[in-house]
């Protein structure tokens, strides 16, 4: 057995585009288009990328809310790629999800008590002190008042609702939690409280997280390893420190340089070093040939249009730092404190 809790290989999710009465298939949105990833026991893997890069779809494939078009999902060594309802039930005990929108992810007609106890009832989990006390323990755990057992979601603030979602995900004591933008709908101070809570829970229950977010600073804070996605692919993956200190893929470099730094004294330097990408992300219905980033890349050459770069270690990087790029950005380019040569202003 490896120490990988979850492995996906060659994972693809193509959503068909249909036309006419007979739903003739005329194309496909290639939301996820060939991803290999492993999540180690006890770690937090961060998935970052901009809207439409396939990070949420990847999360939904990992939890098997979606069934992959191609490729495999192995949980704890077991292939769960295509198991049906009956096979999924035991998986749900081990893999849970936290959703982005704390407003639409809780049923407004159910009380907090029934929302949090639903997983326990569905899975027939025995509760020695009764269902109510099990739920109240969970509420306490996520920092909510256990007396509020009978309240409805609308009586809570956004941050508190997100805590309810976390309590529901924890009810079955899962091994893996996939959190899809769990804090992006929250105010800054509430965001930090929830991040700290997720941290504490991970320590207490030995949880493994896949943390999906577009905010690079939050992902850096919470993750042990980070994978950067672009147009349905992982373009770079590395340990946190390594990735943020030595980003190799031009897209990662551009993404990081775009994050505003909360320090007016560094404003000018930040702006000078900024790599501004032009144009929009191409459509995932018809992605560019070869490297998918080449249409917006300042380093692109002929080979980028013909050959799809493999996700492998580049330059002198350790085996754990893999980049899918023919012309990775070197340390000199990044560290010298100037815009990478040839990058657009």
């Amino acid at each position: 057995m490896t120490d990988n809790l979850l492995e996906v290989s060659g994972l693809k999710m193509h959503f068909p585009i249909t036309k006419g009465v007979f739903k003739r298939k005329v194309g496909a949105v290639r939301a996820v288009d060939g991803i290999d990833l492993a999540v180690k026991k006890g770690e937090t893997l961060g998935l970052v990328g901009e809207s439409g890069c396939g990070k949420s779809t990847t999360g939904r494939l990992m939890t098997r809310i979606l069934e992959p078009t191609e490729g495999k999902v192995l949980f704890d060594g077991r292939d769960v790629s295509h198991v049906g309802q009956a096979g999924l039930r035991p998986l749900r005990r081990d893999v849970q999800m936290i959703f982005q929108d704390p407003y639409s992810s809780l049923n407004p007609r159910h009380t907090v008590g029934s929302i949090i106890s639903a997983p326990l009832q569905i899975q027939n989990i025995p509760t020695p002190n009764g269902l109510k006390s099990a739920v109240q323990d969970l509420l306490k755990l996520v920092g909510l008042n256990p007396e509020h057992y009978n309240r409805y979601p609308h009586e809570f603030s956004g941050g508190q609702r997100q805590r309810i979602g976390i309590a529901r995900a924890l009810a079955l004591r899962p091994k893996l939690i996939v959190a899809d933008e769990p804090v992006s709908a929250l105010d800054v101070s509430i965001q930090a409280q929830v991040v700290n809570l997720l941290d504490d829970l991970q320590r207490e229950f030995d949880l493994t997280y896949v943390f999906i977010a577009h905010d690079l600073s939050v992902v850096r804070h919470i993750s042990d390893r980070v994978a950067v996605m672009y147009l349905g692919r992982v373009v770079e993956i590395a340990d946190r420190e390594q990735l943020y200190k030595n980003p190799r893929h031009p897209y990662t470099v551009a993404l990081m340089s775009a994050v505003p730094v909360p320090d007016p004294a560094r404003r000018e330097r930040a702006q000078r070093n900024r790599v501004l990408l032009t144009g929009d992300v191409p459509s995932p219905i018809n992605p560019p040939s070869g490297c998918r980033f080449r249409t917006r890349c300042w380093k692109a050459q002929d080979i980028c249009a013909t050959e799809d770069p493999a996700l492998i270690p580049r330059l002198e990087d350790p085996a754990s730092h893999q980049t899918a790029c023919h012309f990775p950005v070197t340390e000199d380019e990044v560290v010298a404190g100037r815009r990478p040569a040839g990058a657009q202003a």
Binding site: V188, S189, I190, Q191, A192, Q193, V195, N196, D199, L216, S217, V218, R220, H221, R240, Y244, M256, V259, V261, P262, D263, R266
Partner: peptide, 18 residues
């Protein structure tokens, strides 16, 4: 507010201080 923000220009803190 400042304590709530993880920042890319600093080392990673163990905990945020919101």
């Amino acid at each position: 507010l400042l304590g709530s923000m993880p920042r890319l220009d600093r080392d990673v803190r163990d905990r945020l201080t919101p």
